[in-house]
Each structure stands twice: as C-alpha cells, then as structure tokens.
Design a protein around this nucleic acid. Structure first.
Lengths: 117, 117
DNA sequence: CCAATACATATCCATATGGATATATCATGT
DNA sequence: ACATGATATATCCATATGGATATGTATTGG
C-alpha cells in the first residue's frame, strides 16, 4: 500500500502547504479560482486540483456565479484536526508547570509564588 | 516534484493515522518500541520506521535504556499545527452566529427565535 | 452561432510512500 | 566469545502524488 490519498481526510489534505495557503486566503472570504491563482502564483490547473482535494474532504464549498466558481471555506471540516491536536495542548503547557515545580523545588524557601504565564 | 516527504514537517508526519496512534500511545508515557508494536499490531520494522519519521520532525525523542529504546512524546513540536488550525476556530464558532443572523433576517417579523441545532 | 473567458479534467513523469521481508547493529547474560 | 533479545536499516513493489502542459466544458458577449 502506498501513502494514503490526500483526499482521505482533512489531515492529509492540509499537509500540503499550498492547500493551507488556499485555506488561509479563503478565510478572508469567498474567492474565484483566478484570484487564488494570482495569490498563490501557481498554474491554474494546479490550483483547481488543490481545490478539488479540499472539496473532497469537505474543507471548502463551491458556488457557481456566472462563469466563475466561488470557493468558500467550510471551517467545520477542520475541527477533527483541532480536536486531535488539542489533546496535546495541556502537555506542552504542563511542561512549564513541571519546570515551575522543579524550580520551586530547587529554591524551596523562596517566597515568590509564581510569575505570570 | 512528488508529494512532500513525510519528514518535511509535523503536518506531513501526523497525516498518517498510525503515527497519530503512536503519539496517542506516547501521550500516556514513555514506551519501548515493542510495546508500540503490540499496541498498534504492526510489524516491528514498520513501527521503527514510523518512529524515525516522528523523530525527524521532532515530535518524539528517544532515550537508550539498556537494549531498549524508550520513545517519549515531545508535544511542543505539535504546536505549529495547533497554531494554524486555531486560526479557524473562531470561524466555525462564528458560523452559528452568522446562521442565527441570516435566519433572523429571513424571518424578519417571526417571533420564533430559532429551533435547536 | 462563434469567440473569449473561467475552470476542470486528462496525461506524462519523477519521486517517495507504506507494507513486507531479510538482514544488520547493539547490549546483555552466560 | 556467543546466543539472544531489542531495534534499526535495506530492498522490493504498487500506488498516488504534484508539477507541467494540452484539451475539454460551460457561460457570457456580440
């Protein structure tokens, strides 16, 4: 088996920096393909392909407007990523608590309770 | 150019479900390779390879303990993902506010405020 | 109805993936 | 020193990627 398809899920889809750029651009509002082409400096077919991937995983939606196709973000589809990575948030925060604990232990009789953060 | 290497960054590294499983397991504490092999039900060489990828992007650290190698999570390395995806958090939250607004506008003089959902 | 605009799809290619399997390395016990 | 346990690395293979380019489709204007 090869690597999982980029269209497998949001995780795979946003692993590509260009697709993250597209999403970043769309977070400012709906845009037609050509604008994204200009913004990213990529060939149009390429942008269309990236958009296809993003559509397939549900991260963007399209809307026909005359001969343009307006892409818009569907932020909900990013939630699984947020949910997953958030599980680790307390761990990298705890790290500071641990450090604080160690420091406190080393200094044992300092009156200072704790700085901000 | 082909797809970016899995070792390019944390985004690419955690796009693989198995590697997320490994991280999930390691979030409970340091573990030797064989334990991960058992937990994941994968072949040992395969787990070692996944661990190599995770190491290269700095998501895990290793420590030699006799003939075992104990892997431990380095949660900090996941921060970029959290930072990126968090930019969108307010958008999927806002979505409900917008929807409320739209519904209110469409119904202008309906007394009904909004159904569940 | 035809040209032009705005996209989408199809094909070609180099590359690296992930699974499988075999083998190499390194530390420990005897 | 040697067998064993614990991991790492090497090789083989099918697949799908992303870039480039060419072409197909749909909508608008004259």
């Amino acid at each position: 088996m090869a690597r999982a398809a980029t269209t497998t899920d949001a995780f795979n889809a946003v692993a590509e920096p260009r697709r993250r750029e597209i999403l970043d651009a769309l977070s400012l509002g709906e845009r037609p393909v050509n604008e994204l082409v200009d913004l990213l400096g990529l060939a149009q077919p390429h942008v269309s392909r990236h958009l296809r991937v993003l559509r397939e995983v549900g991260v963007v939606d399209v809307r026909d407007e005359g001969r343009q196709r307006l892409y818009r973000l569907n932020p909900q589809a990013l939630k699984p990523i947020h949910t997953w990575v958030s599980k680790y948030e307390h761990l990298w925060e705890e790290r500071f608590d641990l450090l604080d604990g160690v420091l406190a232990g080393l200094q044992e009789d300092t009156t200072q309770e704790g700085a901000g953060q």
